[in-house]
Simulated scan of single mutants.
Amino acid sequence: MTIWVNEQIDPSGIVYSCIACCDKQQAEECHESFQNNLTDTQKEQGWKATMRIVESWDEVPVSALKLN
C-alpha cells in the first residue's frame, strides 16, 4: 500500500497540519494547496510544505487527517 503524507511544518520542525491519503492525485492537490497557503513571510521564516510516501498507516502521524 502506498500512502502519501502531506505536512505543513513550522520553523522549529513541528507539524502544523497533516493530511494522509491513498489517492496520488488527491495528495498532489493537497500538497499544492499546502504550498500555496504559505505566505511569503512564513516561507521566509522557514515554514515548509512536504509530501512523503509511507507504506503503512502506522507510519502516519497520529494527528493526521486520514483520507481513504
Rank of each mutant, 00 (worst) to 15 (best):
E29L: 07
E32V: 01
W4H: 02
K43C: 09
L65Q: 08
E59F: 08
Q26L: 10
L67K: 08
A64R: 06
E32Q: 11
C21T: 14
K48V: 13
K66G: 01
W47P: 01
D23R: 04
P61C: 12
Q25E: 07
L65H: 05
C22I: 11
G13F: 05
E7T: 06
F34E: 05
E32R: 13
G13D: 10
P11D: 11
P11H: 13
Q42Y: 09
W57V: 02
Q45M: 07
V54L: 13
Y16N: 01
V5P: 01
V60K: 06
W4L: 02
I14E: 10
T50C: 02
N36T: 03
I14D: 09
Q45G: 00
E44K: 13
C21R: 04
Q35A: 04
D23H: 08
E59A: 15
K48C: 13
Q42E: 15
E32K: 11
M51K: 08
Q42C: 07
V60Y: 12
N37L: 09
S56Y: 11
D23Q: 05
H31F: 11
I3S: 01
N37P: 00
A64S: 15
R52Q: 06
V54P: 05
P61G: 14
A49F: 05
I3Y: 05
S63Q: 14
I14C: 09
T2K: 13
A64C: 14
Y16V: 12
A49P: 06
V54G: 04
S17D: 09
A49H: 03
L65T: 09
I53F: 10
Q42A: 15
Q26N: 02
E7P: 02
K66I: 01
S63K: 12
E44C: 03
D58A: 12
L65M: 08
V54A: 11
Q45A: 05
E55P: 04
D58C: 01
E59L: 13
L65K: 12
C21N: 09
P61S: 14
A27F: 08
T41R: 15
V54F: 12
M1I: 07
S33K: 14
E44Y: 03
